[in-house]
Design a binder for these strands. Structure first.
Length: 575
DNA sequence: GCCGTTTTCGGCCCGACTGTTTTCAGTCG
């Protein structure tokens, strides 16, 4: 519902932009963002307090709240339909074509009756577009290339599909002697779960040389453009990288600017203006005098606020908190003392328990938890009660060996049991009670009514043997939505029973996600960051879960696998 | 159309690049 409404307001913004209406487009876009970032169904907000309550949504005022009411009552917004009637085109997809914006869409419709991406492709192939005003042969060619990309690649990339390659490129650039400083920027630096394109920022006295090196890197298949200060390329894998070269004295302001988010920047710039200053990518200026810019920290300081970690820069209250000196001290990788969700070769994972333990030790952990699947999950070779007991014996033996070697490390005995359709657990209590910890998760019957699914999970939460709920909302990023659940009720039950909610670090899941993490933290719920590794190298994915936790404002105290070995054993016994 | 610890009126982020022009509009981030 919220997304439907947000989409309508985005569309209205684009239509207004076509007609050169001033400022209204931004207003509608802002409202769309405000609605999109709600954690609550807009129908519930309306039910609670009508128009007055709607007006509390950021970017929503009198006019737009009335339009929301109209939509909730009639399922449509008249003005939107009128705009759409005038130019009835597939805005959503046409806007995804690089180089095509509102004005061009209007022109293409008026002159060539182009309504869809398919129409656009056809017209370009028939060489009709080059004849239009403000278009030419080159833009026609670019349109075709953008359409090819659009078709190949409708979704954004997941973070882990891009981050490692970009880190490699950064390494190559660092090796050049002309590169004085370098950083990843953009949503990649903010560790957003999906990435549209990558940004790299460089300080150099010889920008042209850097740009030249960059556009001829391995893996570059197309150069979109290359100027003195920036180059833009398409990589073989199908995403774009923008490289910007900036002078040393502006590195901080450029990094701040290109890290975003856009909404965060708009607010920081506005605060600059309020203080009689001007902030752009070249620095923070008082009149013509530059007062900050070399590093990010001095900019935030000059704006009268604490330094804000990149993961927080989404304009979700971080700026207000920074002004009041109330930012959280975010959990860090070095705080993580163990991983409680690793699958061994007992359930068809790739590696033995010993290998997993060794890997955990190499990560400087104090413990690792083996959480094999249980019997209901036949396809994953889930263990039954008898096998669990046998496996536990092996773990006991390994622990004795580790103890003899005088290492401060322990393998913890666990399982990832299944929450059945009725909320029961597929392993008998007497065996569950022999575990150091029990994770419970849903691996079947994903489609249930909201009520049923919520009750199912709450029943598992209330089971005294269950310590942790794995991937609590079940989403697969860009693939599968979360289950229909009442997250408030689930949080309430987790709090009452001191059940830990997992932040699953798999880059395909990242579940809980950032907004829920923030909410859970505010409710005082404990969380754990687990990798859910089915093979050793997946244990390195901890950083993705950690970033999600940081994006959710999580501090060390919120995350139980920052506890020492001794303390986590105590914690797990208490439930 | 929204918003306000100066404002209920008068602001609203801003610069680079491209492709089309021949001084600039559109798009992007």
């Amino acid at each position: 519902m919220n997304e439907d409404l947000a989409k309508i307001f985005y569309e209205m913004a684009i239509y207004l932009e076509m007609d050169d209406v001033l400022f209204k487009p931004q207003a509608y876009e802002k409202a769309a963002i405000g609605i999109e970032s709600l954690n609550e169904d807009i129908r519930d907000i309306y039910k609670r307090g009508g128009i007055k309550e709607l007006e509390k949504i950021p970017g929503v005022g009198k006019n737009i709240s009335e339009k929301i009411e109209e939509f909730l009552k009639t399922g449509r917004i008249k003005e939107h339909l009128l705009l759409k009637k005038k130019i009835p085109v597939d805005l959503e997809n046409l806007m995804k074509i690089e180089g095509i914006g509102p004005k061009k869409i209007k022109e293409l419709y008026k002159k060539l009756k182009i309504k869809t991406v398919e129409d656009l492709e056809k017209a370009a192939l028939e060489k009709k577009i080059r004849k239009l005003e403000n278009f030419g042969e080159k833009s026609e060619k670019n349109i075709l290339e953008s359409i090819a990309f659009f078709k190949r690649n409708k979704d954004r990339f997941l973070l882990h599909q891009i981050l490692p390659e970009v880190k490699e490129i950064v390494k190559k650039l660092i090796s050049l002697k002309d590169v004085k400083k370098i950083s990843i920027a953009g949503s990649l630096r903010r560790m957003k779960e999906t990435i549209g394109d990558a940004d790299i920022l460089v300080v150099s006295d010889d920008p042209e040389k850097i740009n030249e090196f960059f556009i001829s890197l391995d893996g570059v298949v197309k150069v979109w453009g290359s100027g003195k200060t920036k180059s833009s390329v398409r990589m073989k894998r199908g995403y774009d990288i923008d490289l910007r070269v900036v002078p040393q004295k502006s590195f901080g302001s450029a990094l701040q600017y290109f890290t975003g988010s856009k909404e965060h920047n708009i607010l920081t710039r506005r605060i600059a203006i309020e203080k009689g200053l001007k902030l752009n990518e070249y620095g923070l200026f008082k009149g013509k005098k530059m007062i900050a810019g070399k590093d990010e920290r001095e900019i935030y300081k000059a704006l009268g606020m604490e330094y804000i970690e990149p993961e927080l820069r989404e304009n979700t209250g971080e700026i207000e908190a920074a002004i009041k000196n109330k930012l959280p001290k975010l959990v860090e990788l070095k705080d993580i003392k163990g991983d409680l969700h690793c699958h061994s070769n007992w359930d068809g994972g790739a590696d033995s328990i010993l290998e997993i333990a060794k890997k955990a030790m190499s990560l400087n952990y104090e413990y690792v938890g083996i959480a094999d699947h249980t019997k209901f999950l036949k396809i994953e070779h889930g263990l039954d009660e008898r096998q669990l007991i046998l496996r536990n014996k092996e773990i006991d033996k390994l622990n004795e060996k580790i103890k003899k070697e005088n290492k401060n490390f322990k393998i913890l005995k666990g399982c990832e049991a299944n929450i059945m359709g009725d909320g029961s657990i597929d392993i008998k209590d007497e065996v569950l009670s022999q575990m150091d910890f029990v994770i419970a998760g849903i691996h079947s019957q994903f489609k249930m009514s909201k009520r049923e699914m919520t009750e199912r999970i709450i029943k598992a939460i209330k089971n005294p043997h269950v310590d942790i709920i794995s991937h609590p909302t079940g989403r697969l990023i860009n693939k599968r939505d979360e289950y229909l659940i009442d997250i408030d009720e689930i949080f309430k039950a987790a709090k009452e029973t001191k059940t830990v909610l997992e932040i699953n670090a798999s880059p395909y899941r990242l579940d809980l996600k950032d907004v829920y993490i923030k909410k859970a933290k505010n409710e005082g719920i404990k969380m754990i960051i687990n990798t859910d590794a089915h093979q050793l190298d997946q244990m390195d994915l901890m950083e993705y879960g950690l970033s999600q936790a940081r994006r959710g404002w999580a501090e060390k105290e919120d995350i139980i696998n920052t506890l020492s070995l001794e303390d986590i054993i105590k914690f797990l016994k208490e439930k």
